[in-house]
Amino acid sequence: LVRYRTISKIPQITLNFVDLKGDPFLASPTSDREIIAPKIKERTHNVTEKVTQVLSLGADVLPEYKLQAPRIHRWTILHYSPFKAVWDWLILLLVIYTAVFTPYSAAFLLKETEEGPPATECGYACQPLAVVDLIVDIMFIVDILINFRTTYVNANEEVVSHPGRIAVHYFKGWFLIDMVAAIPFDLLIFGSGSEELIGLLKTARLLRLVRVARKLDRYSEYGAAVLFLLMCTFALIAHWLACIWYAIGNMEQPHMDSRIGWLHNLGDQIGKPYNSSGLGGPSIKDKYVTALYFTFSSLTSVGFGNVSPNTNSEKIFSICVMLIGSLMYASIFGNVSAIIQRLYSGTARYHTQMLRVREFIRFHQIPNPLRQRLEEYFQHAWSYTNGIDMNAVLKGFPECLQADICLHLNRSLLQHCKPFRGATKGCLRALAMKFKTTHAPPGDTLVHAGDLLTALYFISRGSIEILRGDVVVAILGKNDIFGEPLNLYARPGKSNGDVRALTYCDLHKIHR
């Protein structure tokens, strides 16, 4: 019993810090008490220290592992850092350059016999395009090294910054494609005289377009951006097909006994025919423009016929181009109408809503002055909100995010209106959640004399007048207030005048 009563005193000691020596009952000389009392004092002292730490809000209350900052290894790049964003855009520009100039170089340097010394005699450094290609190869190699040090988000939505895990993730992902696209074939085969082989191998750079397509997928929600990307894709495919079309004609031209190829026909049409040795002929500019003209006309199913396939190889390629053109029509131009419709969806919704308003007016036989006010209010409210119901949009977000959005939407009023000066951010967040926005066209009466005042109004834009009878008592403008002081009276009061809008007004109100 003594032991039980001794232990039962522990909660009292913990909360009230009572010393055991003052209790005459606990001072009985028993061996059990002498053993338990020192333990009680020690526990009391420890609990006292913990309570003191909690009340003082000291940093040592938290466990040590929670006080440590997340460790980022040296030379690790955050995937959302500004440097990584700028670097990704730079790589994107280099990939676009590669997609345009690599097929052009591979096709127009394929057994090209233009006048001038061969590239091997001039030297590697004197070729501007080769120098640019070398810079692109170096940048792609540097990009691989950067990807080995860039964080990523795993399946659990955690940012991984450990170098080993980053390397394994990159090896399992895009490393092989990036490595093949970054191989400097110019340096590996330079001086061997195989410019045709170098041009063909350099087309491996186009593998990076797969990554670019995935990154550009984030802009699919913007109709104008999608339309622009589709047109660029169409032009890029036409450019690639033009390079292939020229390569076919250029390879067949020296081996044909009869002059029936499209390059021969082009030379005869523009007065620059090929001679018996295969030299001469149109310039590279004429060849490229004509090839691009043929691919565009074939892809769009126009086909004027002034550039036509004559050999079997050219006919087979033309059939493939027609098939590609039909697929592009289905996948690209078939979506253009939907994209344009999405661009004008706001206008369509406006006309639909206006039609419903006019049908309501016609069905209920609203008189002319009231009908005009109804239409003007709808037009003004639509121009202010673009038909978007803010309350319906915010309803799907958590309250903390709703408060931040409301604070942002009402920031101008909260910053410049005098009653809100000096208020804490928590108070402003709470008030912003209570605001209701209303609009009024010129001549609209917001409050009639004798109406119950259940709200306090803040003028965000425009001006109003307060009338008693036919006498203008006051004219209020931006950041002015009218209405009933909230919670100042037990019952809502009545208006002693009319409140009429002089201009288009936007008002925020808080109800009782």
Rank of each mutant, 00 (worst) to 15 (best):
Leu206Gly: 04
Ile166Gln: 01
Ile388Tyr: 15
Lys215Arg: 14
Leu401His: 03
Ala381Met: 08
Tyr65Trp: 03
Tyr80Phe: 06
Ala213Gln: 06
Leu109Val: 04
Glu195Leu: 13
Asn275Ala: 01
Glu157Arg: 14
Val159Phe: 05
Val210Ala: 09
Gly116Phe: 14
Glu157Pro: 03
Thr98Ile: 08
Gly116Gln: 15
Leu201Lys: 01
Ile77Pro: 01
Val210Asn: 09
Gly173Leu: 01
Ala392Ile: 06
Phe420Glu: 01
Phe420Lys: 01
Gly223Asp: 14
His239Ile: 01
Ala330Thr: 01
Arg71Glu: 13
Lys172Thr: 08
Ser383Phe: 03
Ile270Arg: 01
Thr113Glu: 10
Thr352Cys: 09
Pro163Glu: 01
Phe333Pro: 05
Pro103Glu: 01
Phe420Gln: 01
Ile248His: 01
Thr233Ser: 14
Tyr97Glu: 01
Phe296Met: 13
Gly280Trp: 01
Glu221Phe: 03
Leu197Trp: 04
Phe190Asp: 14
Gln253Gly: 08
Gln365Cys: 06
Ser258Leu: 09
His264Ala: 14
Ala130Ile: 05
Pro369Asp: 10
Gly334Cys: 03
Pro309Leu: 01
Ala119Val: 09
Gly223Ser: 05
Asn410Arg: 11
Pro103Trp: 01
Ala204Leu: 11
Cys122Ser: 01
Thr311Tyr: 01
Lys285Pro: 01
Gly193Thr: 13
Glu112Leu: 06
Val132Thr: 03
Ala381Tyr: 15
Val136Ala: 12
Gly191Trp: 04
Thr290Lys: 01
Leu93Thr: 05
Trp89Thr: 03
Glu314Ala: 02
Ile144Leu: 06
Ala423Ile: 10
Tyr104Lys: 01
Pro103Thr: 04
Ile198Val: 11
Arg358Ile: 01
Val142Ser: 01
Thr438Trp: 07
Asn306Lys: 01
Phe185Glu: 01
Asn391Ala: 15
Ile198Asn: 09
Arg342His: 14
Gly261His: 01
Leu229Ile: 11
Ala381Glu: 10
Gly305Met: 01
Leu343Phe: 14
Glu158Trp: 01
Leu145Trp: 03
Pro117Phe: 06
Leu230Trp: 09
Glu121Gly: 15
Val212Cys: 06
Ile146Gly: 01
Asn391Gly: 12
Arg349Pro: 04
Arg371Ala: 12
Met256Val: 12
Asn386Ala: 07
Cys427Phe: 04
His79Thr: 01
Leu201Trp: 01
Ala204Asp: 01
Lys425Tyr: 09
Leu299Val: 01
Arg71Ser: 10
Leu409Trp: 03
Phe397Gln: 01
Ala125Pro: 09
Ser258Arg: 14
Asn265Ile: 15
Arg71Gly: 07
Ala403His: 03
Cys243Pro: 01
Cys400Ser: 04
Asn410Met: 06
Phe294Thr: 01
Ala119Cys: 04
Cys243Ala: 01
Thr385Met: 13
Ile177Ser: 04
Ile72Tyr: 14
Gly123Ile: 05
Ile405Ser: 02
Ser276Lys: 15
Ala238Lys: 01
Asp268Ser: 04
Asn154Ile: 10
Trp174Arg: 04
Arg205Gln: 01
Leu299Gly: 01
Tyr344His: 12
Thr311Ile: 01
Cys122Leu: 01
Lys436Trp: 05
Asp178Ile: 01
Leu110Trp: 15
Leu236Pro: 01
Ile144Glu: 01
Arg362Trp: 01
Asp217Arg: 10
Leu413Thr: 09
Asn250Ser: 09
Arg218Gly: 05
Ile366Met: 04
Trp382Asn: 08
Ala403Gln: 10
Arg259Tyr: 08
Asn306Met: 01
Ile405Cys: 05
Leu263His: 01
Ser277Ile: 04
Thr290Gly: 01
Tyr65Ile: 07
Leu263Ser: 01
Gly346Cys: 13
Pro369His: 03
Ala247Val: 14
Ser337Ala: 10
Thr295Gln: 01
Phe420Ala: 01
His79Lys: 01
Phe360His: 01
Ala432Tyr: 03
Gln341Thr: 08
Glu359Val: 01
Asn154Tyr: 05
Gln365Gly: 08
Ile77Asp: 01
Thr385Asn: 15
Gly164Asp: 05
Arg259Gln: 13
Ala235Asp: 01
Phe360Val: 01
Asn312Ser: 01
Asp444Val: 07
Phe234Gln: 13
Gln372Pro: 01
Ile198Lys: 06
Ser277Asp: 06
Leu236Gln: 01
Phe397Asn: 01
Ala423Met: 06
Lys434Ile: 03
Glu114Trp: 01
Pro184Lys: 01
Ile135Tyr: 01
Cys406Gln: 10
Gly116Leu: 06
Phe234Lys: 04
Lys84Cys: 06
Leu299Ala: 01
Ala423His: 01
Gln365Phe: 01
Phe296Lys: 01
Ala330Lys: 07
Leu414Thr: 02
Gly271Ala: 01
Tyr246Ser: 01
Leu370Gly: 02
Thr437Pro: 12
Arg362Asn: 07
Gly249Phe: 03
Gln365Pro: 01
Tyr222Glu: 04
Thr438Val: 12
Ser326Pro: 12
Thr300Met: 04
Ile248Ser: 01
Leu110Ala: 14
Trp174Asn: 04
Ile198His: 06
Phe83Gln: 05
His169Asp: 04
Leu370Tyr: 01
Arg349Trp: 09
Tyr288Pro: 01
Ser331Ile: 07
Asp286Trp: 06
Gly261Ser: 04
Ala430Met: 12
Gly191Ile: 04
Arg356Glu: 15
Ile332Leu: 08
Arg356Trp: 07
Gly325Cys: 01
Met231Pro: 01
Phe234Asn: 01
Ser313Arg: 04
Thr347Tyr: 07
Ile361Lys: 01
Leu134Ile: 08
Ala381Thr: 13
Glu195Trp: 14
Thr311Gln: 01
Phe360Ser: 02
Glu115Gln: 06
Ile248Phe: 01
Val160Asn: 01
Glu112Ala: 12
Asn156Phe: 09
Lys202Asn: 02
Asn368Leu: 08
Cys126Ile: 01
Glu221Pro: 04
Val226Phe: 05
Val302His: 08
Pro184Ala: 01
Ala291Ile: 01
Ala224Lys: 01
Asn265Trp: 01
Gly173Ser: 13
Asn265Ser: 13
Val321Gly: 01
Ala224Trp: 12
Val131Thr: 01
Arg362His: 13
Ile284Lys: 03
Trp75Cys: 04
Pro441Asn: 05
Leu229Phe: 11
Ile135Glu: 01
Gly443Val: 02
Phe294Gln: 01
Phe397Lys: 01
His79Asp: 01
Tyr246Glu: 01
Thr150Leu: 02
Glu196Lys: 14
Phe101His: 04
Pro442Arg: 06
Asn265His: 13
Leu431Ser: 02
Asn391Leu: 12
Phe304His: 04
Tyr80Asp: 05
Gln402Gly: 02
Cys417His: 15
Phe175Val: 01
Thr385Gly: 07
Leu129Val: 04
Leu229Asp: 01
Ser412Lys: 07
Gly199Val: 09
Thr424Met: 03
Arg208Trp: 01
Ile260Phe: 12
Pro82Asp: 02
Asn391Arg: 05
Ala381Trp: 14
Phe360Asp: 01
Ala423Tyr: 01
Arg218Met: 09
Tyr80Gly: 07
Asp217Thr: 06
Glu196Pro: 14
Thr290Ser: 01
